[in-house]
Structures are given as structure tokens and as C-alpha cells.
Design a binder for these strands. Structure first.
Lengths: 116, 116
DNA sequence: TGACTATATTCGCATGCGGTGATATAGTCA
DNA sequence: TGACTATATCACCGCATGCGAATATAGTCA
């Protein structure tokens, strides 16, 4: 995106919509739970359902969205379909957000908890 | 988030919801346009409206959401309110996504455009 | 103090999205 | 080939969200 350091052309509305879609893919707790399980390694749908407490239909839908967005890849393995993380930025994005939230809530906690 | 390198406890549903909310704040093209303008520096609401083609009411609402999420900070300046980026991870997040999308579409372009 | 400007908030509407139950599709095996 | 298992897809529903118009609130100035 434009700004901050190098002078780049601002992103068009179309490009911003693509960026927004990418963030939207991550903007759901169920999908984040699936991703969290997948950070551990490739998993079948069933394994993901067990790991996240999601039902099969719902998991399939979310997995399809993440795959369409290019974040996951899938492969058939007999009866099974195995999903894996396909875009390394996913983990980095989550880490950035977690770090930011941790700092934010640490600042709030420090404000509320009296210093001994 | 859990996985990938160090073994951390998986995030609770509550934590995942907070992470999702943060991504959701970024999952809208109008809000991304506002952020893009703010990457250039502090701006009033009117300046942001002009930069992004958003009407005042809509901009105010989006700015409030971004501020509530801790991404922006604001200060009164007479009649004016000036907004600025308050969380440095915002720019990093956008850059990560832009990089990922650029690679993705470069790969598609390379696939479709014949090599001379 | 009233007129004006800047901004925040409210309200109504339309669209989008996540979850669930049901069904379709695909692969394996006896 | 039918039974079974794994997964994708469909249809429906209720809730969430973005937009624009209208209104409320805040600050400045003559």
C-alpha cells in the first residue's frame, strides 16, 4: 500500500477490494481455528473438525473459501482430502495481530493493576 | 497463534474472536482507503473524505471503528479532529497482504501470458 | 448569541455471511 | 454392484455490516 517509506502509486479501489477480501478470509474465528490447527501440519477435514469442534459441512465451506483465496492447498488421498497452508504470509499475519493485541491488552492491564 | 515454530498453547475461542475482529477491521475497502491516506500522515476527516471519495458520515463511522480497535488515534484541534495511525502493525499487515497478492497474480499472469 | 463549519451519531435499507440439516458426489471394498 | 465412509455442495435462516440521509453535538467567530 502507498505511503510510509517508498513513494508508490496508491492502490486502486479494485486492489483495495482484493486486499479487503484477503483480510476477510482471516476475519472469522472458525477459520482462524482451522488455520491454527493447520499450522501444526497437513490435516484431513475430519481431523480439522475434531481439532476445532466444527461440524463437517461448516468446515468444508470455510476450507473452500481459504483455498479459493490461495491460503490453503489440498490434495486427494483416497477417500481423504488433506489440506495444508499454502501461503506463508498467513502465519506472519496472525503473529503480527497477536503481538499487537497482546501489547494492547498488556497496556490496559498495566493501567488497571496497581503497581506493588 | 500456535504452531509453526515454538510450541505455544493454542488460542482460546475468545482470543480467536479478538484476532478475527482485528482482521475484520481491515476487511473493508473503504477502511483500507482511509488507512492508505493516513499512511501519508495525520489527516482531518474532511481531508480523508477528499482523499478517498467517501462521504463524511461514512468516514466518521469507519474512523470510529478503527479507533476503537486501537489502530488509529485522534486529537481535537479546534473545529477539527485529526486522525493518525496508532498501531505500526497496520502498515506491516497491509504490506504482507499486498506482497502475497502480487505474488499470486504474478504467478497467474506468468501462467497465462506466453513466454516470448 | 446566532450563524456557520466540522464531526459524530442515528435510522432505515439492502446485501452479505456463518451455521445447520439435508443431499450430492467421490472413493474404497467385499 | 451395493454398502460404507469422507467430503463437497445446496437451501434456508438469522444476524451482521456498509451506505446514505438526516439529525445531534461541538467549536469558532462576529
Amino acid at each position: 500500500m502507498a505511503g510510509k517509506k517508498k513513494q508508490k502509486a496508491p492502490l486502486s479501489r479494485e486492489a483495495l477490494e482484493l486486499v479487503a477480501q484477503r483480510f476477510k478470509a482471516l476475519a472469522d474465528p472458525t477459520r482462524l481455528a482451522l488455520l491454527q490447527a493447520l499450522f501444526e501440519g497437513e490435516r484431513t477435514v475430519q481431523e480439522l473438525c475434531e481439532a476445532t469442534g466444527t461440524n463437517q459441512a461448516n468446515a468444508s465451506k470455510h476450507l473452500a473459501l481459504l483455498t479459493d483465496q490461495g491460503l490453503l492447498a489440498r490434495r486427494k488421498d483416497g477417500l481423504f482430502v488433506r489440506y495444508r497452508i499454502d501461503d506463508p504470509t498467513v502465519h506472519a499475519l496472525c503473529e503480527l495481530v497477536c503481538g499487537s493485541l497482546a501489547r494492547r491488552f498488556e497496556a490496559v492491564r498495566a493501567h488497571l493493576v496497581p503497581e506493588d
